[in-house]
Amino acid sequence: MICEKKSKRLEIVRSLVYEMQSNFKNQRAWAQLSGVSTFASMLAMRRGQDSEIAAIAGVLHDFYFYKTGINTFPGHNSADAVRPIIRSTQVFTDEEMSVILRSIFYQEDRHRVHGPDEEVIKDAILLQTYFQKTGNNFLKTDIHRLQNVFIELGIPEENVDMESNVDAEALNRKSKDRRLMLADFAEKLAGQNIIGVPENERYREICKYWPDSEIYKVLEGNWCAAFVYYCCMQVGILLPIRYPNRMYRLAGVGAWLDWAQLPETRFFYDAKQEEFNPSRGDIVIFEKLLSDNSHDHIGIVLACEDNKILIAEGNIDNKNCSSVLFRDRDHCILGYVRIDNGYHYQFNGEYIPFGC
C-alpha cells in the first residue's frame, strides 16, 4: 500500500492541512508552510536526501501555529500535533514517520547539528524567513548558518545583511516572581465562575492551546489541568503541550505530576514532608479527591491558613465550572509543585517520536 500511494503522499498531506484552514484562516501561515516545504525539497535534492519526505516535513513544520494561531514552541508542539495525522494516513513507514517528526521537532535547535534531514528543515525555515522579508531579527547563530547555506547555493554571503536579535525576555526572566503572578492571575480568572461549555469565551480561551478538533468536548468536565496550564502560559511559565517522550499532555493532571518529578525539574514536594509549607503560587495535586483514580485533580494555591488552603481551580468537584474555595489541607492531597522562578523550559535530550 505504501508503494502504491508514495507518489501522492505530499498531495495527501497538503490536502489534509489545507482542509483544516477553516479552523484557522490564515493565508500567511499557509504561505509559510508551503514556502518552507519548497525550500526543504530543493535542499534535500541538492544534499542527496529524500526530497519528498523533506517537503512533507516542511509543510507540517509549523502545523501547531497553523491550527491554533499560537507560535510557542513551534517544533515541539507541531511534532506532537502532527503525530496522529501522519499515522492516520497509513502511507508512511515507521522510519519515515520518525524522520518527519524529528525534523519538525528540532527546527528551533539551530545552534546544534542533528541529522541531515533535521538540518534541511532548519535551513529551509531560515531561507523562507529571509526571502519573505518578514522583519524578523536573526540570532547570531542563525546568521552564521544562513551564510553557510548561501555559500552552498552559490549566493554571495554578503547578501546576509541583518541585525542580530537579543532575547530580552530571557534576560529579565529571573527578576520576576512568577509564582505570585501565577496566583494573582489564577485567582482573578477562577473567580469569574467560568462554565466549561463552548459558548463561554473564557473556556474557549483556556482550550485554545490544544490542537484537537473536538477539544471543547474532550475537556468538558475535565479541564482542571488545562486551567493550570493556561494560567502558567499567561504569566510566562512557558511549557510545550507535552514534555518530550512522555506519555501524556499537560492537559492532564498526571502529566503535571510526571513533569514536576523529572531530574531536570524536581519541583514536586510530597504532602507528607513536614518541612514543606505550601505558599501562594504553588500548584496542589490531589489524590483520589473526586474519584478512585490517583492524582485526579489539580489547582493553584492562593493561601494557607492553619488546616485549610485557599485554591483557584477549574472544574471544581467535576461540576464543569471554576471557582476559588477552601479545602482541607490534610484531605486527599498528594503533594505540591513549586516552580522555580528562574525556570526556563529547555530540552536537550533525544526526541523519540513513538517511544511512548
Rank of each mutant, 00 (worst) to 15 (best):
I2Q: 05
K6I: 13
E11F: 06
R14M: 11
S15K: 14
V17K: 00
Q21N: 10
S22A: 10
S22Y: 10
S22T: 14
N26P: 06
Q27E: 12
W30G: 01
S34E: 14
V36F: 00
A40H: 00
M45G: 15
R46K: 09
Q49R: 11
D50S: 06
D50V: 04
A55M: 06
A57I: 03
L60G: 01
Y64M: 05
Y64L: 04
T68Q: 01
D80P: 01
D80K: 08
D80G: 01
I86A: 01
R87F: 08
T89C: 07
F92G: 01
M97G: 12
M97F: 07
M97D: 04
V99L: 10
V99W: 00
I100M: 07
R102D: 09
R102M: 05
I104C: 02
R110C: 02
R110G: 03
H111R: 15
R112M: 09
H114V: 06
H114D: 06
I121Y: 00
A124H: 01
L126G: 01
T129M: 13
Q132R: 12
K133W: 07
T134G: 13
N137C: 08
F138I: 08
L139Q: 13
K140S: 14
D142M: 10
I143P: 00
H144V: 10
H144A: 13
Q147Y: 04
N148E: 10
N148G: 12
N148H: 13
I155S: 03
V160M: 05
N165Q: 13
V166C: 07
D167P: 01
E169T: 11
R173Y: 07
R173S: 12
D177W: 05
L180E: 11
L182H: 03
F185N: 06
A186L: 06
G191P: 06
N193A: 07
N193S: 14
I195S: 08
E199G: 07
R202M: 15
Y203R: 04
R204E: 08
C207Q: 03
Y209P: 00
S213E: 13
I215K: 00
K217T: 15
L219P: 00
G221H: 08
N222G: 09
W223Y: 10
C224N: 03
A226I: 11
V228S: 02
G236A: 06
I237A: 02
L238K: 12
L238R: 09
L239W: 02
I241Y: 02
I241R: 05
R242C: 05
R242Y: 05
P244W: 02
Y248G: 05
Y248M: 09
Y248F: 12
G252R: 08
G252P: 00
G252S: 13
R266N: 15
D270V: 03
A271V: 04
N277T: 13
S279H: 09
D282T: 04
E287Q: 14
S291K: 09
N293P: 01
I300C: 02
L302F: 10
A303R: 07
A303G: 04
E305V: 15
I309F: 03
I311C: 07
E313K: 10
E313P: 03
N315Q: 09
I316T: 11
K319I: 12
L325F: 05
D328V: 04
C332Q: 13
I333M: 09
L334M: 10
L334K: 15
Y336A: 03
R338Y: 07
Y343W: 14
H344S: 10
G349S: 03
Y351D: 00
I352V: 13
I352E: 08
